[in-house]
Design a protein around this nucleic acid. Structure first.
Lengths: 219, 219
DNA sequence: ATATTATATGACTAAATAGTCATTATAGGG
DNA sequence: CCCTATAATGACTATTTAGTCATATAATAT
């Protein structure tokens, strides 16, 4: 699953919510997608405050006048991209669940393990997407109400753990919600730190964490 | 151990490194400390980019002209505070190690457990300090060379794990450096997320993580 | 007392930034 | 071919920001 094209229905819904203008919706699909991808890339690279509207316009190949005919303000561009990303995550999760049964039949414990790596796999599939979200959400002083990007991953991990307990593969005394929160938080932090930081142990950390999570380090 | 007063020797060293001016060094200890604490608090609250020099001066009770007679630039104020914090962490660690032997004699495994919580304990002792560092380092676009705040905690955890392996309390096949990196990274992330985020499960997460780290969740 | 040095001050400058608007270009329908 | 609606443009404005500087004040030495 690579970066999907913008969903026209979603765009229409965002027009209703006054996040993008009708003028933006009427642009060619190509132009909309170019703007969208450029926003992801540049917010990811510079953060919200660090990206000037002028700079964005130059890179996206549109004039500043046009920008404000597409989006009511700069923060609406951020909101637009976050909401599209949120939608994308939902679709990704649906995709994963479609393949679930086949994998489960082959090796149940491996599946559990793999499922916990979902965050890391997602990230590797679309680094720009993820870098954008983690960095944009951290950098920006503005708060976008009602966006909770992490809930998709959190919910999925919760399901995984519940099933693990039911099948007896995970200890029964594990607190589901707390564990899911902890695991999704840690997976996010690892992936983020890896990317933004020194890239020590790249790719190994997530697997190593999950092996701890299963077996512990105690002798 | 509460927020320590500025060490005059450290300040002198920072004058040599051209991070603060000699004029700053000559200020009364009281004034220097007021400026320092205000910087911690305000950087923690607003981040580097979010804190205007004018705003800082107003809150710290100094004029803008004075500011630039104390620090060559705004980023030097950040660097100053980070370096003082780095120094503080080193002293905190030394403090902890002084009490080590007594605790070790009483309960070795509990000590191991407690030692891994050091990050969390540190944070609770000085929330403003820690919030500042995590938030300032994330917010600012500027990169300060040669500052690696986390190395103190990382090194300490490494020692703990090595000793655990030697005493047979931790599995011998655990990779020390990778584990220390992972644990310090996770502890930082937990503590940071807790504070900046929804504060769900406040205080419980770190303990819960460490119990996983020891025992795992596998049935 | 006076001279000299060190410190404090806030109006000012130059640069950057989000957002506006009058004008121009483009396209599609009659 | 023109007319109308829609989209594109970039110079302009108002605001904010880091950093400067001439002047005022305080402290210290002689």
């Amino acid at each position: 699953m690579s970066i999907p094209m913008l969903d026209e229905n979603l765009v229409a819904a965002l027009v209703d919510r006054k996040i993008v203008t009708d003028t933006f919706r009427r642009l060619t699909a190509d132009k909309k997608n170019r703007i969208y991808r450029e926003a992801i890339t540049l917010f990811g690279e510079y953060g919200y405050d660090g990206l000037a509207v002028d700079q964005f316009c130059r890179k996206a190949g549109i004039s500043k006048g046009s920008f404000f005919q597409y989006f009511p303000s700069k923060s609406h561009l951020l909101e637009f991209v976050l909401l599209v990303f949120d939608d994308y995550l939902g679709k990704w999760m649906a995709e994963i669940k479609k393949n679930e049964k086949a994998v489960l039949a082959r090796d149940r414990l491996l599946y559990l393990y793999e499922a916990l790596l979902v965050n890391s796999k997602l990230f590797k599939a679309e680094e720009r997407f993820f870098l954008f979200v983690t960095s944009a959400l951290h950098h920006s002083a503005i708060v976008i109400e009602g966006i909770d990007i992490e809930r998709h991953i959190h919910n999925y991990i919760e399901e995984i753990i519940e099933r693990g307990i039911r099948t007896g593969e995970i200890r029964g005394d594990v607190e589901v919600e707390l564990t899911a929160y902890l695991v999704s938080l840690i997976m996010s932090a690892l992936v983020q730190k890896q990317y933004l930081g020194r890239r020590l142990y790249r790719g190994k950390l997530e697997e190593y964490f999950i092996s701890f999570l299963f077996d512990g380090i105690k002798a």
